[in-house]
Amino acid sequence: MSKKIVISTDLNGDITEFIADERDSLLDALRERIGLTGVKEGCNNGNCGACAVLLDGILVNSCCVMAAEVDGGSVTTVEGIALENELHPVQQAFLNEAALQCGICTPGFLVAAKALLDTNPEPTEEEIRFWLAGNLCRCTGYDKIITAVQEASKSMQKK
């Protein structure tokens, strides 16, 4: 049996200590050790984006990060993107625009879309489509997701 390790990381704004298996990916640890099951496992090899989180502020697939790597770093998951008691504008836009159906890809899209709008507040349709190409959705045809990101961009500009 492999080794257990203690990891300390800034998780959604709070310093969190947890025990993981040395062979856990960040995805494994978030879901199975901490219970943050909003992070979804879709392909487990970096090709669907369902497990996307921000690691030290940068968009990554948590299935392609070892849990041990985040010791001393910071991780933001879908559970941590809402603002106090209010949904993040991109979450609200996904609801308003009916941008989710089954919802399994939604957490990854939300984190990726937030990362996009953080660096490029007014993306073009082309830029949104390119940025989100690493996130697969099989229900929506992407139409309403793209619209929702456009709407979120607009509502964030107003604020």
Partner: peptide
């Protein structure tokens, strides 16, 4: 909807 955009929905 809210459960699904906040990661609370249980699959």
């Amino acid at each position: 909807g809210v459960d699904k955009v906040t990661g609370r929905a249980k699959y």
